[in-house]
Each structure stands twice: as C-alpha cells, then as structure tokens.
C-alpha cells in the first residue's frame, strides 16, 4: 500500500493505479480497431447502433460478441445465440479460478466489480503482476488496467456503430468474424495438445455444419476438448 500526498489529499495506493494504467495502455490502444470493426459488423448484420454499444459495455468480450453477431446473422433462434456466446466465454471460469487466490482478502463488492472487467488482456496483466509482486494493491492496480480497457473498448464501439451504418453490404463485412476467430484461435494454441484440439474441432465443425440448432458447434468443441485431453494423456 503506497500513500502519496497530492494537493493535501492522501491518495491511497495511487501509484499502483497509475502503474496499472501504464501497463495496460498498449493493449487498450491495440483493441480500438477491433472494437470499431466489430461494432460496424454488428450494425451491418442488423443490430441497432445502441445495441452494438451496449453489448460492448455489458458483455465486454470480443470473442463472445463476435460469436453472437455471427450466429444472429444466420437467422437462428435466441437460444442458440445465447448458448454459443456462453460457450465461448467458458474460459472465464478458468481465469476466475486462477485469480481467486490473489483476491481472497478483498470484499465481495470489490471482487464483483473486478469480475465484470475480467477479459483476456486484464487477466494476463493482473495474474502476472500479482504473482510478481505480492505487495501490489490488488484493487487499485486492477482498476488501473481494467478501466482504460473498458473506456477504449466501449469508445471504439461508439465510433464503429456510427460508421457501420454507412458501410455497403457489398463489402461482405460479416466475413470479418471468421477471420477474428482464426486469429484468436492461434493465440489460444500453445503446444501440441491445444493444436490437436483445434484441428479436431475444426474438422468436426465442418462435418457437422448441417446439424440442427447449431449443435455442430458444441459437438465440435466437445470433440476438440476430448482430443486435447487424450493427446495430453498420451504425450
């Protein structure tokens, strides 16, 4: 806990907030183009500009938002849209479990606020810092990385939603979505077992694309997870 006197005000742990902001700045800037493209794609798929912005704020996760827009564009039911997005977000349980030991001493209210900002980038920065330096003020450092991410993510959606309605359909903007997924997939692949999981899931998804209620996705994802576990057990 660091205290600084600033114009007569004691700012508790202010330096940890500032170092959080500094750490997250490159990442906060790097998500701006993605946020703009995603919002523009959502609007051109039939989401209202307001919906595109609100979903960025309350769902706050690019992969799940992209999955929702993707599935909504295929004229499916609401249940399928919701289910797909939540499957994409299952990884947050893993992040939640990994951060939990570091946040034990904080109040439930603070932990809840922190949970709303738990995205890939925030998780990566927070877990690195908390493991490196146990004296870091968890609350203020986390806000330092989380709040700029929220601001840049939602802000970029505002711009993208406004621009999105001007983009002609001939540009086939929806094709951005599978490109986003491929790019995120390679980020998620680390080592042989995850590579096998991805390859098996891709093949099963292609084979099962005709299955009702988009169930090909969950069948493919399950097959991929099993393939990954088997590979890991063998290796």
């Amino acid at each position: 806990m660091t205290e600084r006197i600033w114009h007569g005000w004691a700012l508790p742990a202010n330096t940890d907030f500032v170092s959080g902001v500094r750490d997250c700045l490159p990442l906060a800037v790097s998500v701006v183009p993605f946020g703009m493209i995603l919002a523009a794609t959502a609007v051109s798929t039939g989401f209202s500009p307001l919906q595109a912005v609100v979903m960025s704020a309350i769902i706050f996760g690019g992969a799940a938002q992209a999955a929702m827009v993707d599935v909504a564009g295929q004229n499916t039911s609401i249940g399928v849209i919701v289910f797909t997005a939540l499957v994409v977000n299952l990884r947050y349980v893993m992040y939640s479990g990994s951060l939990a030991p570091h946040l034990r001493k904080l109040s439930s209210a603070r932990r809840s606020v922190m949970a709303t900002m738990l995205i890939d980038q925030v998780y990566a920065l927070a877990v690195t810092e908390f493991s490196r330096d146990t004296d870091t003020d968890k609350w203020w450092y986390y806000l330092g990385i989380g709040l700029p991410m929220v601001a840049s993510w939602v802000g970029s959606h505002v711009v993208g939603a406004v621009v999105g309605s001007q983009i002609p359909e001939s540009l086939q903007l929806q094709f951005v979505l599978p490109l986003v997924f491929v790019s995120l997939m390679f980020t998620a692949i680390e080592g042989r077992a995850t590579r096998v999981a991805a390859a098996v899931a891709a093949l099963v998804a292609i084979a099962g694309a005709g299955l009702p209620f988009n169930s090909g996705l969950i069948v493919a994802a399950s097959a991929g997870v099993v393939a990954g576990l088997v590979t890991e057990g063998v290796a």
Partner: peptide, 12 residues
C-alpha cells in the same frame, strides 16, 4: 482446451 476448440469450430 475450450478456447482453441471453440474458436476453430466457429471459424472454419
């Protein structure tokens, strides 16, 4: 394994 598997299934 969920992220890599789901994203591959969404993309290809």
């Amino acid at each position: 394994f969920v992220p890599a598997a789901v994203l591959a299934a969404l993309a290809f």
